[in-house]
Amino acid sequence: MVVASPTQIHGEKLLAIELPVIDLSGERSMVSNLIVKACEEYGFFKVRNHGVPHDIIARMENESSNFFAKTFDEKQKAGLANSFGYGCKNIGFNGDTGEVEYLLFNTNPLSIAERSKTISNDPTEFRQVLTPFILL
């Protein structure tokens, strides 16, 4: 899941762009070609008909927004993204530079329970939101 950062990066406003939407219920080779094209042109895409219930998506977006709205120091408490944790990297090669923040999880529920203490203001809610998302 990708969510836009609620904060400005280096004082600059982020421009909203319309990302390609890919319907996963389509014919497999066509879907594959659309994914490749979207990755080449944008680096990101949205998907439709993925099977994840809307209420889980809404709850995950809310938790994600809450996490990424924290200060840099607070986000680093989630651990550096060696394998799993919080990361922030500079991206772009051809004048399209910027930063991307991300949070990587192990799909083991015990790992999520431990990490949620440093990620969310309400670790119990965070675990309840994330667990069904990874078990789909």
Rank of each mutant, 00 (worst) to 15 (best):
M30W: 10
G95P: 09
S116K: 09
N66C: 14
T71E: 03
Y102A: 02
N90C: 06
L24Q: 03
F133Q: 03
I57T: 02
S83T: 07
A113S: 14
D55Y: 14
L34R: 11
S5N: 03
T124P: 04
H54Q: 12
N33V: 02
V52T: 03
M30A: 15
I35P: 00
P53S: 01
V129P: 01
R115Y: 12
A38N: 06
N82P: 00
D55P: 04
F44W: 14
S29D: 11
D96E: 01
K46T: 15
S83W: 02
K37E: 13
E61Q: 06
D122S: 11
Q128P: 05
S5E: 00
T124E: 10
D122Y: 11
T97S: 10
F45H: 03
Q128V: 14
N121F: 09
N66H: 15
A113R: 15
S111E: 10
M30V: 15
E101K: 05
R127S: 14
E40V: 15
D23W: 07
K75G: 00
H10Q: 12
D96G: 12
E99H: 01
E40T: 15
N94C: 10
A4R: 13
S120H: 06
P53R: 00
V31Y: 05
R115C: 12
F84W: 02
K46R: 15
L135Q: 11
D23F: 01
E114L: 14
D122Q: 10
F67W: 08
P109M: 10
F105W: 12
S32N: 09
K89P: 05
R127E: 14
L130Q: 01
M30T: 15
V2L: 07
L24F: 07
L34C: 10
N82H: 04
R48M: 12
Y102I: 06
I57K: 08
C39L: 15
L135F: 12
S64D: 04
G51L: 07
R28P: 09
L34E: 11
P6M: 03
S83N: 04
F68E: 05
Y102D: 02
I9V: 04
I112T: 08
A113Y: 13
S116Q: 04
H54I: 15
D73F: 06
